[in-house]
Structure formats: C-alpha cells, structure tokens
Design a protein around this nucleic acid. Structure first.
Lengths: 111, 111
DNA sequence: TCGTGATTTCACGAATTATCGAATTGGGGA
DNA sequence: TCCCCAATTCGATAATTCGTGAAATCACGA
C-alpha cells in the first residue's frame, strides 16, 4: 500500500458516521447491509448517508451492489487489511512492535 | 480504545504531511526529531509544520518535549498500537482476519 | 542585559467537507 | 402501464481544515 491510498482510506474512516457505518458493515459480514438499513442504524438523513457511503466506496473500503430494488454495501476486508499492514509496518521503531499483541512487525519499511 | 478517540487518531493521520511526519518520527525512534528537522524534511512552512505537529500531539500520536532551545517530537507507539488493535478488532467478519498475517483477530467486538 | 535562533501563536483567505431538503432515477408489483 | 418505494443526485449553506506571513514567545550565549 502506498502512502497516498493510505491517506485516502484513513480519511474515509476519520469521520464518526463513516466509521460507524463501516463497523456496521463488518458486523453484518460479507452480505453487507442495504442502504436503508444503514440509514436507519445511523439515524441521519438519507442523502447524508449516501454521501458517506460513497466516500467509503471511493476509498475502496466498501463494495456496492444492487439487489432488487435496494442497494447493498459490503465491507472490503482486503482494503482494511492492507491499511492495517501499512500501519503495522510504520509502527515499529526497530525494536519490534510491542503494542500489538500477536503481531510480529520487525522491519521499519519506509519506501 | 473508544470510537471517538479512534476518529481523532484516524483524522490526525489522514493528511499527507501529518502521515509523513509521523513516519519520520517512527523512523527516528524514541528520541524523535527536533521541529526544525521535521520542517526541513517535509519542506513546508514552519507555521504549517507546527500546526500539523500540534494535531499529532492533540491526537496523542506524538509527544512534545523541550531540549535546550529546540522542541523535540517523539512518536507515541502506544497510541498507534491501540489504533491498530481497534482496527483489527473491527476487521474480522467472524471468519478470522486473513489479511493481517500473524494477527489472530477472532472476535468482532462492537461495544 | 541584549541579541539571536528556534518555534509557536495569530489573523485571514482559500479550499474542502458535512448536512439537509427537494427533485430525480431505477426497479418491482398491481 | 402506472404507481410506489429505495436510493441517489442536485443545490444551497454552515462548518471545518489547510496554508501562509507577520508578530510574539522562549531559551541560550556573549
């Protein structure tokens, strides 16, 4: 993952409603949720939700698909995994990352 | 880590110069870097750098300390580790997180 | 004490982001 | 076909963020 896309993904998650939406999607699993369900869960205007969901899709964190007359959003685990990998690679100061239990990050890779 | 502070940290990293600055700090290790060195490395106006560094400090990602007449900034590995932990906990859909090698994230904890 | 270098704070304009209501599109079902 | 229902797009506005130069602060050494 490059720094530029890391910034895009971080920016997509750096908003209360979007982080909440993504967590909902993760919780819902691979099938994701319909836009209407997300709107109901987040308790914001439909147009606002659409705006935020579009940002998640744009950042690659969510995948949009039509199911009948509703539109479903599913989480993209790969993008999140790459973000975490990027952060872990930038987390270690050379002595290993003692703050993330179970993660063996040794190499401070800085392109 | 709560969602609110996760958003603060994500927001602090979701900016080109701030992400670059934090990576510099991580690379520099526990001693960190003087503000002037960071300004030189990022090639931005001193006031802009000060603005961004203040955001990192405010989010808890960096620690500020005076050394002589210069001010040093050091990375806070704990905050980054907690953020990664938060993301990992929200990364798994229940089938384990296959995208982060070495990380055993099984429980989709949603407070 | 006085000057000097290192940083931050202040003030301000430009750009981006967030939110909402209204109008619009796109698919079923009667 | 005609009518709903789900969701998005549009248009406008409020709020936030970013970048910069000028001024203030802070600590050190002569």
């Amino acid at each position: 993952m490059e720094g530029q896309s890391a910034v895009r993904i971080l920016g997509a998650l750096a908003q209360e409603h979007r982080l909440a939406a993504f967590r909902l999607l993760v919780r819902a699993g691979r099938e994701g949720m319909a836009a209407g369900e997300i709107v109901a869960a987040l308790d914001i205007a439909p147009s606002s939700a659409s705006f935020h969901l579009a940002q998640l899709v744009n950042a690659g964190l969510a995948i949009q698909s039509r199911h009948g007359r509703s539109i479903r959003y599913a989480p993209n685990y790969t993008a999140m995994g790459e973000l975490v990998g990027y952060l872990v690679d930038n987390c270690s100061g050379g002595k290993g990352c003692g703050e993330v239990p179970g993660c063996g990050a040794e190499a401070p890779a800085l392109p």
